[in-house]
């Protein structure tokens, strides 16, 4: 298969969660989510308990995919920032390193300007971390063996 899995180790997850936890605080936001472009949730921080994060991840990826299609249609490469304004809560969506999507939910305690500013800074850090993960995945020696150890019985067992 041409596409390898995206693999994230514990320490990488910790690093990402630290960055977005700090972002939530510095941006006075309610929550932040990092989502892969295929719709998988990578990490989240802040007040996340009231929102179904799996749905959020899938819809965000769909949203980015659709606006990316629109961008191509008018000759743009992609729209790297989307902003949805609600009555109480707002959503700021940005693409980090062409690869992952950063979602910020904020209300009147913050402002679009502040969120933008903080997202720019955190985005750079996240971009670096993502690059590190991708580079690690590319290097052959770090291939982990979790999947090799899966047996046919394991797979069968899922359905018993």
């Amino acid at each position: 298969m041409s596409q390898a899995s995206l693999v994230m180790f514990e320490e990488e997850s910790v690093e990402i969660t630290e960055i977005i936890t700090r972002l939530v605080k510095e941006a006075n936001a309610k929550s932040a989510y990092l989502v892969d472009k295929d719709g998988q949730l990578i990490s989240s921080a802040g007040e996340t308990q009231d929102i179904d994060s799996t749905s959020l991840a899938s819809l965000t990826a769909g949203n980015i995919a659709a606006t990316g299609g629109l961008a191509k249609l008018i000759g743009e490469q992609e729209f790297s920032i989307l902003f949805h304004e609600g009555e109480k809560d707002n959503i700021h969506i940005s693409i980090v390193g062409h690869r992952v999507i950063l979602v910020i939910i904020f209300d009147e305690r913050s402002s679009l300007g502040l969120v933008r500013l903080r997202v720019r800074k955190a985005g750079e850090e996240l971009g670096k971390t993502i690059q590190k993960i991708l580079a690690r995945m590319d290097s052959a020696d770090s291939k982990e063996n979790l999947l090799e150890e899966i047996t046919d019985d394991d797979i069968e067992g899922l359905f018993s």
Partner: peptide, 15 residues
């Protein structure tokens, strides 16, 4: 593309 998350101990796949 599948996503293997060691932190959440999850294997995610798209069908």
């Amino acid at each position: 593309m599948s996503f293997i998350n060691y932190s959440a101990r999850e294997i995610n796949c798209k069908i």
